[in-house]
């Protein structure tokens, strides 16, 4: 039923309200903007954990109130382990982590445990349960985890003596993997040393 009223003599001036030149530009800009956003989101999703380059610096305050800054640990091999008390695989690797720490702690290796999205009470209970002696502190605001693009606990990041990231381990560590990694990193020498 198309009823084009043919008697109309006066016509409205063609006010193409929604298709003026400005409108065209705006619509394109909007579509491109959405696409750009989605593209960026896609890249973010597909990029995995941080595995190379300089390890992002941070300052971590332990449950006892002490603090340590990553850049202040240059010259030592640093093992950064993300964990949480509510994470079952973390419990599996906890004894191994602690025993490896005790083995290497006088050889220029520093362990940092970053407690991710946890409650203090449970975290302290966890530390107590496994007799953990290396440095542990809560990741306030999950900033450190975000910097490292950490996806889920447990994850371990290996930092060489010069502060560069040498890869990650996703999931719990089992013997002898951690020992091997530490030995590799300890054996690194740098030009001019």
């Amino acid at each position: 039923m198309t009823e084009m009223t043919t008697e109309a003599i006066t016509e409205a001036p063609g006010k193409r309200v929604w298709l003026s030149g400005l409108g065209t530009v705006l619509i394109y800009a909007f579509v491109l903007g959405v696409l750009g956003l989605l593209g960026w989101g896609l890249m973010k999703v597909n990029s995995g954990q941080r595995e190379s380059g300089m390890a992002p610096d941070f300052t971590l305050t332990s449950f006892d109130g002490e603090s340590v800054t990553l850049s202040g640990l240059r010259g030592q091999v640093v093992i950064i382990n993300f964990w949480a008390s509510w994470c079952p695989p973390c419990r599996e690797e906890a004894p191994y982590l602690e025993s490896t720490w005790r083995k290497y702690q006088d050889q220029g290796v520093f362990f940092i445990g970053v407690d991710y999205a946890d409650t203090e009470k449970e975290a302290l209970a966890y530390i107590d349960e496994f007799g953990i002696t290396y440095f542990n502190g809560p990741d306030v605001g999950t900033r450190i985890a975000q910097d490292y693009r950490m996806d889920g606990v447990p994850e371990t990041y290996f930092v060489a003596k010069n502060g560069e990231l040498r890869g990650t381990k996703i999931g719990p560590l089992f013997p002898p993997e951690l020992d091997q990694r530490i030995e590799e990193l300890l054996a690194e020498t740098y030009a001019g040393e």
């Binding site: 009223t5 008697e7 109309a8 003599i9 016509e11 409205a12 309200v17």
Partner: peptide, 14 residues
């Protein structure tokens, strides 16, 4: 509003 206004101004002469 603009659209409605422009529609309304197009009238049949009778």
């Amino acid at each position: 509003w603009q659209a409605l206004r422009s529609w309304r101004s197009a009238r049949l002469i009778e």
